[in-house]
Amino acid sequence: MSETQATDTGRVAAVLARYPRHDPGDLVNILHDLQAEFRYLTETALQEAAAYLGLPPAQVYGVTTFYHGFHTEPRGEHTCTVCMGTACHVRGAPRLLEQLERDTGVAAGGTTPDLSLNVEEVSCVGACAIGPLVILDGDTHGHMTADDLSRLVTKLLDNEGRE
């Protein structure tokens, strides 16, 4: 076993230990915690979660892929999420997403090939008053226009390039 694998296993075990009841009902909570730890859900992590909860790996995989919040592919460093909720939609959110997809060449749900940015959409984050909005690495930007978004993302990715 390689060193990273060994530490990964340790990290998975640490997450699982938060759920001492071995209760299958904790599966989704565990998947959240594992994803927070690794940014995405690796096969190893899912296999271990399955063994820990006594569930068939196929069920764990089925559950993981059922929810749009979980990712089984490596994820990028940054995340730009366009709110596509109804309130934002009627205020022009689709144009924002199109712009973002054009700027990054990645469709919603995808990640740029250099793993710098994830392009995401979400349905309402409860800040409809300032829609349409975009969330860049956890920071919400309200009253967005396609142009503002373009600048925001270009700036972020340019800074990346320079580092």
């Binding site: 096969e43 899912l46 790996p57 995989y61 089925g62 892929t65 059922f66 089984t72």
Partner: peptide, 27 residues
Amino acid sequence: VRVCSALGYNALAAIGRGAHKSVGPPF
């Protein structure tokens, strides 16, 4: 998926959802 799981092998998974749902081996 159901037959395989009823037999206790659980080799197959229902994957994804909606029109993108599929069945097959996990991972």
